[in-house]
């Protein structure tokens, strides 16, 4: 695919990344392409994607549904090989699941082990890290507390509502303490109140743990509220329409920030990009 020497070449300036230019890029996606199958029957899902995510940045990817956002995340998580271009963390090409990354999947019902209780699901990825017992417990307690599920730790996932299951999946990612957290429409199945709480949790963990966060969402308000930058994708096959810098004061809060005229302007900006006939 890509020759090894490319992995160490510094990246040519990331698109629209000027305000974050001083921060080093952690996650780089350069001319990434993905198609399934080969030859004439090949189905192109991603044409050419280029964007980057800097350290401690929250980037949201928005775009019409069914344009391969999940495929993109699977490539970034090293679950699927790319067909062209490259994706790298700190300049190292992603060739398998990177150790510094966690992924919250869109389909929570297929991401939790139904035979494990909530707590054991959270502990599962931590076992091979060989943490001291006390730390293991502390991380697990803290993560469950953060998503408000400390009371449900001994229940099985299938005894919980969809929103609660997704929160377990988020707690599992938090306890793993990844440097880079990727989430695929993580809040699509939770009620509005929980959704606000989880969005704020997302902002809080960026501050608390210095995580770099990439979120795919179809909710433009959510993208603008969360992100430092919004990557707007167009179809088909997927390509970057524009990268919008979100200039909203922080810390953000659900009532104040969403009431700002700048918030409305930004979301109109993004929305008009998506609505515009391609």
């Amino acid at each position: 695919m890509t020759s090894p020497h490319l992995a160490t070449t510094p990246l040519e300036g990331s698109l629209g990344g000027e305000p974050q230019g001083q921060r080093p890029a952690r996650l780089d996606v350069v001319h990434l392409a993905k198609s399934y199958g080969t030859g004439d029957g090949a189905k192109k899902v991603i044409e050419d994607l280029t964007f980057s995510v800097s350290a401690r940045e929250i980037v949201c990817i928005v775009g019409p549904s069914g344009i391969g956002k999940t495929t993109l995340l699977k490539c970034l998580a090293g679950l699927q090989p790319t067909s062209g271009g490259r994706a790298a963390i700190d300049g190292r090409e992603i060739s398998g699941p990177p150790p510094e990354m966690a992924l919250v999947f869109q389909d929570y019902s297929r991401s939790l082990m139904p035979w494990l209780t909530v707590r054991k699901n959270v502990v599962l990825p931590l076992r091979h890290l060989r943490l001291p017992k006390a730390e293991l417990k502390a991380r697990c307690d803290e993560a469950l507390e953060a998503v408000g599920l400390a009371h449900a730790e001994n229940q099985f996932p299938w005894q919980l509502s969809g929103g609660m299951q997704q929160r377990v999946a988020i707690a599992r990612a938090l306890a793993y303490r990844p440097e880079i957290l990727i989430m695929d429409e993580p809040f699509a199945s939770v009620d509005a109140q929980t959704r606000f709480d989880l969005e704020d949790l997302c902002l809080k963990i960026r501050e608390g743990f210095g995580m770099t966060i990439l979120v795919v969402t179809h909710d433009i308000d959510e993208a603008v509220y969360l992100a430092d930058r919004v990557v707007v994708l167009g179809s088909k096959p997927a390509r970057v329409l524009r990268i919008v810098d979100v200039e909203l004061p922080s810390p953000r809060d659900q009532i104040g920030t969403r009431a700002l005229p700048e918030f409305a302007a930004q979301r109109t900006d993004v929305l008009s990009l998506i609505k515009r006939p391609a």
């Binding site: 699941p97 297929r110 599962l124």
Partner: peptide, 12 residues
Amino acid sequence: RGLLDVASVYRL
């Protein structure tokens, strides 16, 4: 497949 992806991502 979803469960296997989880196992891969968390490098079990």
